[in-house]
Simulated assay, not measured.
Amino acid sequence: MKKSILLACAMIASTTSFASEHEHAHWGYTGDGAPENWASLTGDNFACTGKNQSPINLTGFIESELAPIVFHYQAGGNEIVNNGHTVQVNYQKGSYIEIDGKQFNLLQFHFHAPSENHINGEAYPLEGHLVHADKDGNLAVIAVMFKEGYENKGLAAAWKQIPMHEGDKHAFSASVDALDILPENKDYYRFNGSLTTPPCSEGVRWFVMKEAVTASKAQIEAFKATMHGANNRPLQDVNSRVILK
Rank of each mutant, 00 (worst) to 15 (best):
L155W: 15
S194W: 00
R190I: 12
D180T: 14
A157Y: 13
E21W: 11
L6P: 03
M145K: 03
M11W: 12
F191K: 04
Y188R: 03
A113F: 01
E151Q: 09
G77C: 06
L130S: 07
G121F: 02
S4A: 09
N185I: 00
F191Q: 04
A143N: 03
K2N: 06
H118R: 14
C9E: 10
V144L: 03
F191G: 01
L179A: 15
V204H: 00
T226H: 06
Y91E: 15
K217I: 07
F46C: 13
V89N: 04
I162S: 01
A75W: 07
C200A: 10
Q236F: 04
G31L: 00
A143W: 01
G43T: 02
I5M: 14
T15S: 05
T226W: 06
S173Y: 13
G121P: 00
N117A: 07
I56H: 01
G60H: 07
L130N: 00
F191V: 04
E184T: 15
A25D: 08
F191T: 03
G84E: 04
H112W: 05
A218I: 01
L195K: 08
L107T: 08
E211A: 09
T30P: 06
L244P: 04
M209F: 11
M164Y: 13
I119Q: 11
G43Q: 05
S64E: 12
Q74V: 12
A34F: 00
E148P: 08
N45R: 00
T226F: 05
R233Y: 01
L179I: 15
N52W: 12
L58V: 01
F223E: 00
V213W: 11
Y189P: 05
S216R: 00
G203W: 03
D180L: 06
F104N: 13
D100A: 13
K102F: 05
G101P: 02
K210Y: 01
L244Q: 09
N120H: 10
G76I: 06
G154C: 07
N185G: 00
D187C: 01
A157F: 14
E98F: 08
T16P: 00
H72F: 05
F46H: 15
A123Q: 08
E127L: 10
A140T: 05
A39W: 04
D134K: 00
G193N: 10
N117T: 01
H165V: 12
